[in-house]
Design a protein around this nucleic acid. Structure first.
Lengths: 344, 344
DNA sequence: CACGAAACTTTGCGCGCGTAAAATTTCCTT
DNA sequence: AAGGAAATTTTACGCGCGCAAAGTTTCGTG
């Protein structure tokens, strides 16, 4: 705290601590790699003078950084905000410094971020791509240069591994539950979803419905961009007024659409829930952080946020330790958990 | 795209483009600073070989980086996610590269981020501190070293400037509106809010109520952390069952508390809104991204997100151009806009 | 065509640190 | 007390680029 003298570089810091610069360098690389006695002397000097190695000089000369890049498609989506939060925590625990980027839903930004990231020489990258709209070539080139683990959205062949949730597990659970406890659901989704998970969910819906000997009904709504609540809201207003919903049960592709759907129902005076006097059942997928607080609270299927984030970080660290390449691409998908609330 | 030869550094790139290295260096610093003809030659080489200057080498040698640090207290709060998104956009427009950090509600992390940021030598920093729980000394020391503009939460004397919203404008508008159209509101807030805005809002509530010759009633609820919806929900359940609410109108300190409040009301079967048959009016502050989709939709007072983010970035850029110091600390607070929806 | 300013090239140093090799010291073992 | 392995110091080089000074070319102007 009391800086008697301004320390300008490691040379000067080594001088005041009475240790040679190369040893100090080793210390900062790994404090356990030096003799306890010298370690104490350095640490003593460290709280007399507050010195930190120049990260740019360090990273320029090190072949491998201690940075882990984290890229999400849209950080203003609480789902990604939450998963990013957990991932950052895991990275710090593991002794790395996370560097967080959001593509903000724009392809050009995603490409730009990838270029920036490449020049940052990160030890590894956890990438949740935009999905269908991503520049596949750019991502492929990036993955060639940087040890990358994909998460959330799987794009075939990209990256050394994928970590995410099992879409079939999501949808089969919700469909089975809804069929068991009432009318079979129709499936409410965007006409042209950017996220590949949406497609897998629709397929899973159709398959599960057919397996249960029901006729699948997919309701597609228009809308672009990442403002899913608004899209769900508008789509619901339209679907409700045009009576597109053949059944009294609606399964939304994700919770954000469902949140919009519930808002529309409330406005139209349609009572949602599973009890008597309810006209409609609505369920979603993802267990969005706010789905507990919708009216009524949203029945949904939950990601295992903790498992996905911790496995994602573990996988990328394992990848780094394997020299940036796995023998073959691995895909780890985790099952989801049905969360029963009041909306269905 | 077709890399005939791997470019390892600026030396090699200068060679293949037929321009000297110092000029190429100038080009990357500012493309307009070189003659158009040489600029074209460099740009041609640039798409034949994909080369980017080593950011670490660049930043080590440059006194001033092109980075703008952005720190928010809790990124999983959609309000901060949204404002961070807009700030990032403005930074990129202005030719800087934003570097985003979230304190995740933890003081130690905030201090750690500040230390990391200091060593990054950013051109400027936009800092939204945790608030009361922040380590004031750490922030003060940081602001001495790095040109910093505070936003959202004002801490007296810290940073060279503050940009935020006018809390009095928020609350006076909501209180006046509510008093004009029905019973005067009670004020619903956390007992021990971390954010200094909360205190200013309570004061503004009391002042406005007294100016309108009403007795202010503050309802304080327990709860810690950043899970405001849950805190609002639990607090509302308690307040409703214990009949702490003396009036039929509740003004929540922020929208996230209001979202929890509405969830509790729905669960209790209490009809919220301003029409006949409604038992309670509920309003909030902030115009949280999801307040459009609550049930009923939330009447609130909106930040001018665009103005706050653009002014924040403009201010920090002006600060950098002023050499990192303003003559005296400036405080820019922007008025808020009342947004009438269905809840009050 | 001459002239001067602007742009460019050449040359060379420095930034702060990683890292390797050889010499020296420290520490633990027998 | 001797021996040897481990840790440390010394010495030295390199990373990729910013930046400054001096010399050379380019360009627009009269």
């Amino acid at each position: 705290m009391s800086d008697l003298k301004k320390i300008r570089n490691m040379e000067e810091f080594a001088a005041v601590s009475g240790i040679s610069r190369p040893t100090v360098s080793k210390f900062f690389h790994d404090p356990a790699s030096v003799r306890p006695s010298t370690r104490h002397r350095i640490e003593e000097a460290l709280d007399r003078y507050d010195y930190r190695p120049n990260i740019y000089a360090v990273n320029q000369n090190r072949q491998l950084t201690k940075t882990i890049g984290v890229v999400v498609p849209y950080l203003a989506d609480p789902f990604f905000a939450e998963i990013a939060r957990k991932i950052e925590g895991r990275c710090i625990e593991a002794g790395f410094s996370p560097s967080l980027f959001s593509s903000h839903g724009q392809v050009e930004l995603e490409v730009e971020i990838l270029d920036t990231l490449r020049s940052m020489k990160p030890a590894g990258v956890l990438l949740a791509p935009l999905g269908r709209s991503s520049d596949k070539n750019a991502i492929e080139r990036f993955c060639k240069d940087v040890p990358t683990v994909l998460f959330d959205s799987n794009i075939a062949g990209m990256g050394e591994a994928f970590v995410g949730s099992d879409n079939f597990s999501f949808v089969s659970q919700s469909v089975e539950y809804l069929c068991r406890t009432g009318e079979p659901p129709c499936f409410f989704e965007m006409r042209d979803p950017a996220n590949p998970n949406a497609h897998r969910r629709r397929t899973a819906y159709i398959d599960t419905m057919e397996a249960l000997c029901h006729v699948p009904i997919v309701v597609k709504i228009d809308g672009k961009g990442w403002n899913f609540e608004e899209i769900g809201y508008q789509g619901a207003l339209e679907a409700l007024s045009e009576r597109k919903l053949v059944t009294d049960t609606v399964l939304c592709s994700n919770d954000r659409l469902a949140i919009g759907f519930l808002a529309a129902c409330y406005e139209k005076g349609i009572r949602v829930g599973k009890g008597d006097g309810c006209a409609l059942r609505v369920a979603g997928h993802d267990d969005h952080p706010f789905s507990r607080f919708t009216c009524p609270s949203l029945t949904t299927v939950a990601h295992n946020y903790d498992l996905v984030s911790s496995q994602g970080v573990k996988t990328v660290i394992r990848l780094m330790e394997s020299g940036g390449r796995f023998g073959k691409r691995t895909e780890a998908v985790f099952p989801a958990n049905l969360v029963l609330r009041h909306s269905a």
